[in-house]
Design a protein around this nucleic acid. Structure first.
Lengths: 225, 225
DNA sequence: ATTATCTATAGATCTATAGATAATGC
DNA sequence: ATTATCTATAGATCTATAGATAATGC
């Protein structure tokens, strides 16, 4: 049973009728190849403007073959969204811990570093997907909007503590999302760039240069640990 | 000749076959009614996901009647984009003047106030349109991307002066665009909120509380003038 | 037998054009 | 005569389903 789970690397040498064009990359399963192609297309043309035929074409399969893995087009985007938010959610507990032990400034710095890291690493800049109009408006993507709203709340809570006044989490969230815009323009978002964003975020919350320096050092030490 | 230009308020009492449903708002020309309906739909569903039939339906005309005013669907979006950027471009000289007379911090504060003002006032939150995937990717919208890039450059230039080190204009631009996100969530973006954004922007560029206070006062005096 | 593909296609769009028509204005 | 609409429709999609088929695995 667990062996069945482990062998989720089904390619290559799997059974099934051969493709009309052989797969380019055999390290990815069929499902993963579809997600990969769809991610690229959704990110640079949008969801509605991308047809299932285009996705299939990039993979090297026929349009109808997509439906063997996904019951409809929405489901492909849903899965990509889930993959996009997961890495940040997985680390949210660490931020909580930093807040308790070292205060909100260090925690805010840490959260910005984690979140920018997730966005900087996301394959094909999928951090852009949550801002697609369909994700913002359609009922089926509500769960992902909720996750994002929680993150914005966390920014607002931490930021308000740092500033000593009400700070809108959207402000900080948007600073963080500048990573996506930078990547869209082909920039490499490295650790230095992410520290600049974290510094800007604390500055936007009214922290002094010295407070930022301390928060940075603490966050750094904790994230390594 | 000039009278022909002036009488661009063609409704009501214009000739032409009656609509199958009479117009709701006769203070707007047919063209303006189309732009208004399209703006709402493009903002909350996106461009590709909005059909010409839906736009026409909202206006109360038949789908084909749109083509009397616009040669194709793209042209509607192009016009909305032009209307969206115009107010900020119209005031860009004033920012230049502030920079020369009072320094970059005041100018940055002023630019943020102007730009957030434009976004806060844009009908139906059309400040969101530049971030639609089609506008980012399709050839015909290149002019609007160029205008936006210029604005980002201005933020970078002013921000770098304030910080005394290289600051990425995208950071500041994203703080400003948080106005759009706030409006999307139904928030009222008033002058207080805009001052908070300008303050955060200068803080993100490393300005001290006192520098921000001065920049705010100067920008305020100059924008009134 | 199972799996992963394929072919074929139904049915529902969607954009844009052609040409008719119902008003007003002269 | 001019204007702003209408009706009708061509032609090009696009999504999803039904059912066939070519491999491997047992």
């Amino acid at each position: 049973m667990s062996s069945a789970v482990i062998s989720r690397r089904s390619r290559p040498g799997r059974p099934g009728r051969p493709r009309h064009v052989p797969a380019v990359d055999n390290t990815l399963s069929g499902r993963e190849q579809i997600l990969d192609a769809a991610a690229r297309l959704f990110v640079d043309r949008g969801f509605a403007a991308t047809s299932t035929r285009e996705i299939a074409e990039r993979v090297g399969i026929r349009q109808a073959s997509l439906y063997y893995y996904f019951s409809n087009k929405d489901k492909i985007l849903e899965e990509l969204l889930a993959l996009t938010v997961r890495p940040t959610l997985d680390q949210i507990d660490r931020v909580e811990a930093v807040a308790n032990e070292h205060g909100e400034a260090a925690a805010l710095y840490a959260l910005v570093m984690i979140d920018t890291g997730t966005l900087a690493e996301a394959p094909h800049n999928t951090g852009l997907l949550p801002s697609l109009p369909e994700v913002r408006s359609l009922e089926q993507f509500k769960p992902y909007r909720a996750v994002h709203a929680d993150l914005v709340d966390a920014y607002g809570r931490l930021g308000s503590h740092v500033a000593g006044r009400q700070v809108d989490g959207i402000l900080v969230a948007h600073l963080v999302e500048s990573v996506v815009a930078s990547r869209s323009e082909g920039a490499d978002v490295n650790e230095t760039a992410r520290h600049a964003i974290a510094t800007a975020a604390l500055g936007a919350c009214g922290a002094t240069k010295n407070e930022i320096k301390i928060a940075s050092a603490v966050a750094w030490a904790e994230l390594i640990a």
